[in-house]
Design a protein around this nucleic acid. Structure first.
Lengths: 214, 214
DNA sequence: AATTCTCAATTAAACGTTTGTTTAATTCAA
DNA sequence: TTGAATTAAACAAACGTTTAATTGAGAATT
């Protein structure tokens, strides 16, 4: 992929993440990327095709990481869960803008083609995580859980703090105009600690549902 | 509020939820509500003011429920958590469209005024849930947890299955064109069961973090 | 009781922008 | 000299909003 194409994609990603797909005009993208308006159609064909290119461009990476994590025999299932959380929190917080587009595919995107691509990516990633959890169950470390829902809990918890920055800043007790890096530095460890605590309790076979709750 | 005003709000809610705020034109709303285009400006002033009216219209209800749940002395903290989950799953699944707008306030809404209103509502609801959890902690039933993050887990888990219907249908193994009621009937009990299992393990004081994980 | 008056409700049409995309001309390195 | 890269300009369509005219039911006046 040419440098210029990639540069346009990255600038578009920023804008889509900040203002949404509909809220971003092709003129905005062209201006931020420092290219002529017509170059977007020239390179990508259309605004929707640009989004499709962006999805493909970003999606390849994640799957490779998950696959590698899965294969690593030196890590226990518990280690893998921790790494999984670290990976997703870091990845989402570092690609905030892109994640917001991928995550809420239903409202932002009208193209069936892109929707199907996004779902395929999500299902593929779910497969990898399923392998990690079933492995932990076979080793009698994890109990029975609803795996897709558990993945939803991980992704959803992170997303609930990336989809509305203003609320997030309120919770973290920081100014809303805090720069991205400082924002991540505050949010990341807290999200990781919370998610690990939740999943440790949720997955641990010793926490099987008790009869009486109190 | 006049019948016609309310009728326009409800139709707008459907469209915003399906197509997003930017993806819905005032002409769409007028047509679906069966009123003249100019009536939207006449009643609400502008498209953004319409959204603001919608937020106010829908937000009052939730707070009342949470307040009442909190005051109920006959319920144990565990019961209240269960009721909380039931309430939120039902509420969000029954107002899918509206929830998606509220939830992703950052991208869809440009008006600072509306953003502030939404955040105020979220913070107010967080206060009520905080009271429920701290009460459980004082009664030595719940352990120490990150309360705002825990609320994020509840809302995020639900949202991850409401923001992208196509993915959700894939997980539930149902056709994507399944009608709303059948969709809810499948999703609702599964979400509730999962969230209750997660929160039971997460909050239970007997599941205090152990030294070794395995 | 019949008429006029009043004003909110409703309408079709037009407003000026902004949108995504295309055209046709130009640049420029190979 | 060739052809891809780049440009400014123009395109039609859709957008949110406003205008000015019309309707129609209830209050006031005769």
């Amino acid at each position: 992929m040419s440098d210029k194409r990639e540069h346009i994609l990255i600038e578009a990603e920023k804008l889509f993440g900040e203002r949404g797909f509909d809220g971003t005009s092709v003129r905005d993208i062209a201006q931020c990327a420092g290219v002529n308006l017509a170059m977007i159609s020239y390179y990508f064909g259309s605004k929707e095709k640009l989004l499709e290119s962006l999805v493909v461009f970003r999606a390849e990476y994640a799957y490779g990481i998950l696959e590698e994590l899965n294969k690593d025999q030196s890590l226990s299932p518990w280690d893998k869960i921790d790494r999984l959380i670290d990976f997703y929190v870091d990845r989402i917080l570092n690609n905030l803008r892109f994640h917001n587009i991928m995550y809420q595919e239903s409202t932002a995107v009208r193209s069936e083609e892109i929707k199907e691509k996004i779902i395929a990516i999500k299902m593929r990633n779910l497969d990898q995580i399923t392998k990690i959890i079933t492995d932990g169950q076979q080793k009698k470390l994890f109990r029975q859980v609803d795996i897709p829902m558990t993945v939803g809990t991980i992704m959803g918890t992170i997303s609930s703090y990336t989809q509305s920055r203003a609320y997030s800043c309120n919770i973290l007790a920081i100014r809303e105009d805090t720069d991205d890096e400082a924002y991540r530095a505050k949010l990341s460890p807290r999200l990781k600690a919370h998610l690990k605590q939740v999943l440790r309790a949720h997955l641990d076979i010793r926490n099987e549902d008790r009869e009486g709750k109190d």
